[in-house]
Amino acid sequence: MKVQFALVCTLLSLMTSAAVAAPSQAVYNKILAQGVPQDALNRMIHFLDENRGRSFQQSTYDCARWPDSIRPCDESERRPSTDVVTLESPQEVVIIDFTEASTTRRFYLIDLKTGDVIRYYVAHGKGTGTNYATKFSNIKDSKQTSLGFYLTGGVYSGSYGKTLRMYGLQSSNDQAYNRDIVLHGAWYVGEDFIKSKNPKTGQPFGRLGVSWGCPALSLAMASKVIPQIQKGSVVLHYHRDLMEAAMSGNEVSINEPQRRK
């Protein structure tokens, strides 16, 4: 594909870069008051400030059947490629707090200008855990979620409808494109699934379903959120205890929290 694109939201034309990267104290406090983890928010602000205007080279692939498309294709049809993506100054960013259980609305859609936050349910990878996310890696075919910062790209129509390409910007997730780690909707995300009965046990699942490594929203929420954050937003896959260790790209893990009695 080898296409370099500047990713910038239309709304940002009325804003200064500094205003986006460094929210006022009032906006910062407002975001924290809505449950966003402070360490994750600090990491987001620092990353935006340090990398605004920076271009990142990405290991990607082209598909023989549709060389100009971002849709995935079978391994046999893939041709190694390189893309360059540029981080500008997104107004809306996402933090997913994988420290929390899947039954928590741990997907935070944050407006850095107004301080407004909307929270959603979001699934993690099958190889990462069941209710809690405890294992992460950048390894192909691991079905594990990868921690770190992502830049959102274009949208294509996938098995679950609107699907958002993401580019991993760190050593913990730089294989995101080749692993097809994308944001999509799924039928197994939402309160209905949490309360539904597991046919194997006859008991409620008590958790969300799991993906093959992708962050997955409910189908309804994905169709709403994806257009808001496509082409230039930043998404942080966060875990309080594993961010630095994850930079190896290898599997990192933590024990599942003890259930509260």
Score class of each variant (00 low, 15 high):
residue 166 M to Y: 06
residue 167 Y to N: 03
residue 167 Y to S: 02
residue 169 L to T: 05
residue 171 S to N: 15
residue 171 S to I: 00
residue 172 S to G: 13
residue 173 N to H: 03
residue 174 D to L: 01
residue 175 Q to R: 14
residue 176 A to L: 06
residue 176 A to P: 08
residue 178 N to R: 15
residue 178 N to I: 15
residue 179 R to I: 09
residue 180 D to I: 11
residue 181 I to C: 05
residue 181 I to H: 07
residue 181 I to R: 05
residue 182 V to N: 09
residue 182 V to P: 08
residue 184 H to Q: 12
residue 185 G to M: 12
residue 186 A to W: 10
residue 186 A to E: 09
residue 187 W to T: 14
residue 188 Y to W: 13
residue 189 V to G: 09
residue 189 V to R: 07
residue 190 G to I: 08
residue 190 G to C: 08
residue 191 E to A: 14
residue 191 E to D: 13
residue 191 E to I: 15
residue 191 E to V: 12
residue 192 D to K: 13
residue 193 F to K: 14
residue 194 I to Q: 07
residue 194 I to H: 04
residue 194 I to F: 03
residue 195 K to D: 07
residue 195 K to M: 04
residue 197 K to D: 12
residue 198 N to D: 15
residue 199 P to A: 09
residue 200 K to P: 01
residue 201 T to R: 04
residue 202 G to I: 10
residue 202 G to P: 11
residue 202 G to H: 08
residue 203 Q to V: 00
residue 203 Q to N: 11
residue 203 Q to P: 01
residue 204 P to M: 10
residue 205 F to K: 06
residue 205 F to T: 02
residue 206 G to H: 07
residue 208 L to C: 04
residue 208 L to Y: 02
residue 208 L to G: 03
residue 209 G to S: 10
residue 209 G to F: 06
residue 210 V to L: 07
residue 210 V to Y: 01
residue 211 S to H: 04
residue 212 W to P: 00
residue 212 W to Q: 14
residue 213 G to Q: 05
residue 213 G to H: 06
residue 213 G to K: 05
residue 214 C to F: 04
residue 215 P to S: 05
residue 216 A to H: 00
residue 217 L to S: 01
residue 217 L to R: 01
residue 218 S to G: 15
residue 219 L to E: 11
residue 219 L to F: 01
residue 220 A to W: 00
